[in-house]
Design a protein around this nucleic acid. Structure first.
Lengths: 139, 139
DNA sequence: TTCACTGCAAATCATTTGCAAGGCC
DNA sequence: GGCCTTGCAAATGATTTGCAGTGAA
């Protein structure tokens, strides 16, 4: 638990019991858990824990860069009629999704997971601010 | 409209009015629309169109490989306490997410979108079947 | 005492499901 | 006629919000 506490503090996050528990869980379980998996594990040790707190804590950790968030599951999906290999760039300012050309289209195939028998899909995407939105924020 | 119809048929999909409209929209709009954006556009020309049909059609097109589906938005998210650059592999058989090492960690930086002022995040992931699940299905 | 944190309950939003009606072969 | 497709309405499931209680500095 000491590691998780110090880890939180190094990111400028106040270490409450619940936050330490969530951070500790993520540091010791490399299973890429969902909110529900984290909640169900931790409610055993902290019976009063609420789902809301788990949501709050994960958002906080994510905003401070202490954890990564993966949106692999399909929900709130966008569609693309262009089926050739390319990456995507979501601008968080205007919400638009741009296509991105890759300098090495073989990269994705070359890095196929070693324990994979078949790959049905591969996606690379970026999030950030586009030039237009960035310029607007300078004002 | 003729292009969309033939496109559907080439993927073995029966070309109904609604399916042609959805496919045509995706072929002529490279804006990576959401379900709702597609629905609101098309309900103008087909007033009886229901959201369910748009969902059905998109799933059908996706399963036949006629379109791509992007899960960029955050919903049903998984979390990772390991913040170093690596990719992920989701096995659709067991639902587990595995970490994937990259042979060229500079690739992602090198391919940063040209119209991006700042990048806050980049994700590469694969979907498919892991060796264990693939072996099970052979039985 | 104040302010941030927590947690319950209700609200919201996207998506799915059940089922009946319509249309095409 | 039979089957595939459509579309309404209700159900589901994840996430967010409002707000009141709690606890730590």
């Amino acid at each position: 638990m000491i590691v998780a506490k110090e880890y939180l503090q190094s990111y400028g996050i106040r270490p409450s019991t619940q936050r330490i528990a969530v951070m500790h869980y993520l540091l010791t379980h490399r299973t890429h858990p969902t909110v529900d998996e984290i909640y169900h594990e931790l409610v055993e040790e902290i019976p009063t824990l609420s789902r809301t707190t788990v949501y709050n804590t994960l958002h906080l950790l994510y905003e401070h860069g202490a954890i990564l968030a993966l949106s692999i599951d399909e929900a709130n999906v966008r569609f693309d009629g262009y089926t050739h290999p390319h990456a995507h760039f979501l601008c968080c300012g205007c919400g638009k999704v741009y296509d991105v050309d890759l300098d090495d289209v073989a990269f994705v195939q070359r890095n196929t997971p070693k324990n994979a028998a078949t790959i049905t899909e591969a996606q690379l995407f970026y999030k950030g601010l586009c030039n237009v939105c960035s310029a607007k924020r300078q004002n």
